[in-house]
Design a protein around this nucleic acid. Sequence first.
DNA 1: ACGCCGCATCTGTTATGGCAGTTGGCCCGA
DNA 2: TCGGGCCAACTGCCATAACAGATGCGGCGT
Lengths: 216, 216
Amino acid sequence: MLTHTRPTDPSSSAHDRVYRQLRTRIMHGEIAPGQALTLRGIGKEFDVSMTPAREAVRRLVAEGALFLSSSGRVSTPELTSDRIEELAALRALLEVELASRALPRAHMALIERLQTINGNVAQAVENRDAVSYIRTNLEFHRTLYLRAQAPAMLAMAETVWLQLGPTMRALYSRFRKSEPPHFHRLIIAALKAGDEPGLRLAVRSDVTQGLKMLVR
Amino acid sequence: MLTHTRPTDPSSSAHDRVYRQLRTRIMHGEIAPGQALTLRGIGKEFDVSMTPAREAVRRLVAEGALFLSSSGRVSTPELTSDRIEELAALRALLEVELASRALPRAHMALIERLQTINGNVAQAVENRDAVSYIRTNLEFHRTLYLRAQAPAMLAMAETVWLQLGPTMRALYSRFRKSEPPHFHRLIIAALKAGDEPGLRLAVRSDVTQGLKMLVR
DNA sequence: ACGCCGCATCTGTTATGGCAGTTGGCCCGA
DNA sequence: TCGGGCCAACTGCCATAACAGATGCGGCGT
């Protein structure tokens, strides 16, 4: 099949399209840990050859979103407790800083948007929809951190989310009890009050909270 | 040319060899900012086809070590002041934490090794050898942080180093004055004393020091 | 019944070639 | 002398095919 269009924008090339779709799937926890993937399978699904499929996969491997076995097979990673703890610590480190930087720029429109998103989070919890929960939860955090005007730092935080994606899925389908977004409300309150120490604590707690129980 | 050996270990495949060599070059500042690269050129240099060259390049792009123009051309990045400031903040954030985690595990053999490496740093400064300076300086930091037993965090720190590589080269060839590794000695002293606040401050200062003057 | 071996199939790796967008230099005209 | 446009070489993207290690399953021997 030689009928491919060749866009000049690399963000719309075939491998990039495959990359972005796989990335969101993984980050949102739509793939279970340990799930195996094949290049030909991905190629068939996205109607491309192995080359761009391979490209997308290797990129995700480089970001830690996929695990590469010694024989070159790829699968979503099954994280150890140590790894999860470390990634949680990284989330805390990065996101506390991002929130702190976003605080002086957080005006009312942002806070209202966060409240809206938080409503969606609560609804996802209500529906016991793990994927929706992860997605809206990340949207909440990203919306706040975008205000930090620190793209490299945000990119690193997203990389951590990506690495935790499949594990988060396993976590939230294990704990089906509905936990309302308590710490999100603390975050919003601290933003309103301009309370930086409170914000740092609230973010740290929110980030640590869920993962702490997974480690045991 | 169909005479390629096909090792089972992916870390010894062709694209990985190309990747590692390019990566060290970039991290050690052997390539100037804005330097353009071509897939066919890389392939010819490493005696492989475009495919593994492309693989290695895309991986480095994913890590922020190379810049991809809108037309797909690759070059080493030319960082803005904002970006440099942000990456410096990231270094501070990550490396302070890594040092802090390494502190309780830092025994005498480690400190002696750091002192030896620091001698090499001083010698590189003496010789006005920018590449040697960057290499030994990073070796100093990595040796310390390895003790933190936090591979994901260390990997992130290395990613930041990678992004700063070409810029560091530009920095240290601009400031040719010999600056002895003052903060390194503070780091070693704090390690010996088990002084955690002092260590954090020393690492933060060391990381921030050089880059601060570049921003102006 | 159990374990082991071999083969068919699956899968990743790479070289190659065709295609299309990009670039840079050269020539022509004003 | 300068500016614009045209063309050839350059460059990246992708499909494909040949190849080799990995996998898993069925059958054979014990």
